[in-house]
């Protein structure tokens, strides 16, 4: 067995330095719920593991002065669930994060890891896309920001540059009348991988949609931002025609494969159904219901 080095730096600079120096032979360890399984199955053979959980910024949930949130990349689902306000402002994002795995997994797994694992079926990603979250990335050339939907490049691949680490997510401030929701279709009742996952974030003013974003997962090589679906809802009062148009946009965005988890026909049909249902939940939340 090859030697594996383990580092748990206290600062981001140290982490980036070690990660970049390893030139691709290193892997970032947050909760480890993907990485350790991949290593055990021989799918990942890192020479260096950089544990980011000792870096304060990576494990913090901060409420920003403007009402937004900054979530460290290694924050676990359980930590998010325990935060007194996050779930009130972003119930859809929280649901999505905590649909991942079992209670035990939720105590370890992080949205940062879920994003960087780059599975087309990652549950937190469509909700983060719908939320309009922005990712902060740090690498040898410094910090930059990119929208969540720009991170995945394909199954298991990201658009991060060599040596770059995801530091955290910034979620924008929420105007009054906003709500979000995430729904997924799985063949069993729990602990499963999405056949379709769909996140919606809405803002309503006097019953009219003033802001709408839709993220769609498990139906294409990457999780998608479906702008056409959001546009179909924008300016509407969520009439049937607008919902039909948004559902049609979701179906049209699907580029799935036939595989053991579901057929093209099924995934496509369910994408439209989930759009309508997620919109209904988000709208109810936006209007003060829960």
């Amino acid at each position: 067995m090859a030697e594996i080095r383990y580092l748990a730096p206290r600062t981001l600079d140290e982490a980036v330095g070690a990660f970049a120096a390893a030139q691709g032979a290193a892997r970032i360890l947050a909760g480890g719920t993907d990485l350790l399984v991949q290593m055990r199955n021989g799918l990942a053979k890192p020479g260096l593991i950089v544990d980011i959980k000792k870096i304060a910024e990576m494990t913090e949930i901060a409420e920003l002065p403007d009402g937004g949130f900054r979530i460290g990349a290694a924050v676990s689902g359980a930590m998010l669930a325990e935060h007194p306000r996050f779930g009130q402002v972003w119930p859809g994002v929280l649901e999505a994060v905590n649909l991942i795995g079992s209670k035990q997994v939720q105590g370890r797994a992080s949205p940062g890891g879920n994003l960087c694992n780059a599975s087309p079926a990652g549950d937190s990603v469509p909700a983060m896309i719908a939320a309009g979250a922005v990712v902060t990335v740090q690498g040898p050339e410094g910090r930059r920001q990119m929208p969540v939907e720009a991170v995945p490049a394909g199954p298991g691949r990201t658009n991060l540059r060599p040596g770059e680490i995801v530091v955290g997510f910034t979620l924008p401030p929420r105007p009054a009348g906003s709500g979000d929701a995430y729904l997924r279709m799985i063949p069993r009742t729990e602990m499963d991988i999405a056949v379709v996952g769909l996140g919606v974030s809405l803002t309503l003013a006097g019953g009219t949609v003033t802001h709408a974003r839709v993220g769609l997962g498990a139906v294409a090589p990457t999780v998608l931002l479906v702008e056409e679906a959001g546009n179909a809802l924008l300016g509407s009062r969520l009439e049937e025609a607008a919902l039909d148009a948004a559902a049609a946009a979701c179906r049209a965005a699907c580029r799935p494969i036939n595989d053991k988890r579901g057929t093209i026909a099924y995934r496509t049909k369910v994408a439209g159904v989930l759009l309508k249902r997620a919109v209904a939940i988000a709208a109810q939340r936006a209007q003060g219901g829960n």
Binding site: P187, R188, T189, E190, I193, K260
Partner: peptide, 16 residues
């Protein structure tokens, strides 16, 4: 056979 583990082969869970 491509359903070689619990991630793809779905036995009932406790909630079923």
């Amino acid at each position: 056979l491509r359903t070689l583990g619990p991630a793809t082969y779905k036995i009932p869970g406790s909630r079923d």
